[in-house]
C-alpha cells in the first residue's frame, strides 16, 4: 500500500496530507511565539517606571524590513498562483524575488540593525544620583508632563576601555540627542528618523552608575526580549529561505512529474512564510513603535 492523499484531497476531510501537517505545525508555532509574547507582556508589566525603554530602535529601517516581508508575502502567493495556472517560468521569477526579499530582510537585520545596537551604549544611574544628572535627564519636566522618568543615559561610548578596566573611573558618552536638551517638549516622544549620537560628550562617573553595558541582550529585559524574539524570528526567515531555495532549484523535477504536487509544496512553504510575516506584523509595533 502506498500512502494516499499526498497530492489530491481526501474527500471526507477535503484536505491533502501536507496541508493538515503544516497547519498543525503552525498551530504549535502560534503557541511558541505565544509563550514569548506572554513573556513580553509579563516582563513589561513588571518593569519599574522608566526601565522599559522607548524609541531606541531604528524605525525607518524597521518599516523598510516590514515592507520587504509584506512584499515577499505577495510574491510567494503569486508564485503559487502561477503554478496553479501552470506557468512555470513565471513561478521561478516570483520565487526568486521572494528569496531575494528574505535575504534582504536578514542582511538588514543581522548586518545593520543588530550591529548598530551592539555599538550603542547605555548607563543606568543609581536612584540617588538621578538628581546629579538632572540637566541630561530633565525628570522635573517629565514629571510635570505626567511622563515616565528617565533613569538611563544613552549614546556613543568614547572610551570603550572603560567597560572592562576598573582603573578608569568614568564613562565618556557622546550623548543621544534627547539628553542634550531634555526639557524640549519635542523630545518627550521618540522621533521617526534615527539621529546618530551627538558630539556633545558627557562624563558619567562609574560611582553613580547602577549598570552600564552596550545594547546587548544583557542590557535590560527590553533588549533581552528584542534579541530573543527577533533572533528566533530570523531563524524562521532563514528556514523559509532555505526551503524556497530548494523549491527554486529542484522544483522542476517535481513539476515534470506532477505540477499539482509542486503547487502544493509551494502552498505549504508559503503558508509558513505568511506565518513568519504575521509574527513580524506584531513584533514590529511592539518593539519599534511602542
Amino acid at each position: 500500500m502506498e500512502i494516499p492523499y499526498t497530492v489530491t484531497a481526501r474527500p471526507d476531510t477535503g484536505l491533502w496530507n501536507a496541508k493538515v501537517g503544516i497547519w498543525l505545525f503552525l498551530a504549535s508555532e502560534v503557541m511558541l511565539f505565544g509563550g514569548l509574547f506572554s513573556a513580553y507582556i509579563f516582563l513589561r508589566l513588571d518593569a519599574e517606571p522608566g526601565y522599559w525603554p522607548h524609541g531606541l530602535l531604528n524605525v525607518p529601517v524597521g518599516t523598510f524590513n516590514t515592507a520587504v516581508l509584506i512584499f515577499s508575502s505577495v510574491t510567494v502567493v503569486l508564485a503559487w498562483a502561477s503554478l496553479k495556472m501552470r506557468r512555470y517560468s513565471r513561478y521561478r521569477v516570483y520565487m526568486a524575488i521572494t528569496i531575494l526579499c528574505g535575504v534582504i530582510f536578514l542582511v538588514v537585520k543581522l548586518g545593520y540593525e543588530w550591529p548598530q545596537k551592539y555599538d550603542h551604549f547605555g548607563a543606568y544611574l543609581k536612584t540617588s544620583s538621578l538628581e546629579k544628572y538632572e540637566r541630561y535627564l530633565g525628570n522635573k519636566h517629565l514629571l510635570a508632563e505626567g511622563l515616565p522618568p528617565r533613569v538611563e543615559i544613552t549614546g556613543h561610548l568614547h572610551n570603550e576601555a572603560a567597560l572592562d578596566d576598573p582603573k578608569i573611573k568614568e564613562y565618556e558618552v557622546g550623548l543621544d540627542v534627547v539628553y542634550t536638551d531634555p526639557t524640549d517638549p519635542k523630545m518627550d516622544r521618540p522621533h521617526f528618523f534615527f539621529v546618530p549620537p551627538t558630539e556633545h560628550v558627557a562624563t558619567i562617573e562609574k560611582a553613580d552608575v547602577e549598570r552600564a553595558t552596550m545594547f546587548l541582550p544583557t542590557h535590560n529585559n527590553y533588549f533581552a526580549t528584542y534579541f530573543t524574539i527577533t533572533g528566533l524570528h530570523g531563524l524562521h526567515v532563514l528556514g523559509g529561505v532555505i526551503v524556497f531555495t530548494y523549491l527554486f532549484f529542484f522544483g522542476g523535477i517535481t513539476y515534470r512529474q506532477n505540477p499539482e504536487h509542486l503547487a502544493n509544496r509551494v502552498e505549504v512553504a508559503g503558508l509558513f512564510w505568511h506565518f513568519v510575516d504575521l509574527v513580524w506584523i506584531f513584533v514590529f509595533p511592539l518593539f519599534y513603535l511602542l
Binding site: A27, S28, V30, M31, L32, F33, G34, G35, A39
Partner: peptide, 10 residues
C-alpha cells in the same frame, strides 16, 4: 503539539 511550545520558549 500545543503545550510543549510555550515550554520551548521558556
Amino acid at each position: 503539539l500545543l503545550a510543549f511550545p510555550p515550554l520551548e520558549s521558556a
